[in-house]
Amino acid sequence: MEDYPFKSLVTLGHVRKACAPFESRGNMSKWKSVLNDKDLLSTHKGMLLHLGGIDVDGAYRVINKKGEVEPRIHDLSFTHTFGLRPYSYGLQACNTTSEIMVHSWLSAAIHDHEEIAPETLSKMYNKIEE
């Protein structure tokens, strides 16, 4: 978060570090002895592991410190989301990533912030391979 260029979003709590749940509580216990406290985030859903970069949902909307989607703030920069999206597939992925974000905007405008199902996102990325 120290390198995130939009410091006011960090200060106001509109973004958080990318994180993921542990597969099981047993795995969490195993890693807790190896990891620093800065690598872990305690939430009402349990302990999460920081991955690097900022947290975004499937439509590249940023996740705030409360774990909630910020519907008006999107960030699809690879350098900001590398913790969740560690690979770049070139121009096809850029096109599909933009398509996902525009689909999100249209859904929000038409359906008042309707979520995009993961299956829909997978279909969009699968088109790259065809």
Rank of each mutant, 00 (worst) to 15 (best):
Y89M: 14
C94D: 05
G90V: 09
K30S: 04
L12M: 05
S24M: 09
V15K: 00
K17D: 00
S98K: 09
N64P: 07
R25E: 10
R85H: 06
T43W: 02
Y125V: 08
F82V: 00
H113I: 09
V15I: 13
N27E: 10
Y125N: 09
Y125E: 13
A20H: 03
I128K: 08
L91F: 07
L106Y: 12
V62T: 15
D39N: 15
A18Q: 00
A108R: 05
K66Q: 04
I128T: 13
P71G: 10
N95Q: 13
L121T: 13
G53P: 09
L121R: 05
R72Y: 10
M101Y: 02
E99N: 06
Q92L: 05
I73L: 15
S24C: 04
H74V: 03
R16N: 02
E68L: 15
S24E: 04
T81V: 06
I110R: 03
L76A: 12
P5D: 08
V10L: 07
E99H: 08
D112G: 06
M28W: 05
M101S: 05
W31N: 15
E114T: 04
T79H: 03
T120K: 11
I128S: 09
S122F: 06
A93T: 06
T79Q: 04
E23I: 13
G53C: 10
A93L: 14
E129D: 10
L40M: 12
I63A: 02
R61K: 15
F78Q: 02
V34M: 13
G13W: 01
L106N: 06
H113W: 10
H111W: 09
S24Y: 08
C94W: 03
P71I: 04
T79L: 06
H50F: 01
E114M: 12
Y60C: 07
H113D: 11
N64D: 14
M47R: 11
S24F: 08
S33K: 15
L106I: 07
V102M: 13
R61C: 03
H80Y: 00
I100T: 06
E70G: 03
W31Y: 11
S88T: 06
K38R: 13
V15C: 00
Y89I: 11
S107E: 12
Y89H: 08
D57Y: 03
K65W: 02
C19L: 10
S122E: 14
N36F: 12
Y87Q: 12
H74K: 08
M28A: 15
G90N: 12
M28K: 02
S8P: 04
F22N: 15
Y89G: 14
A93K: 06
Y60H: 12
L106D: 07
N27I: 06
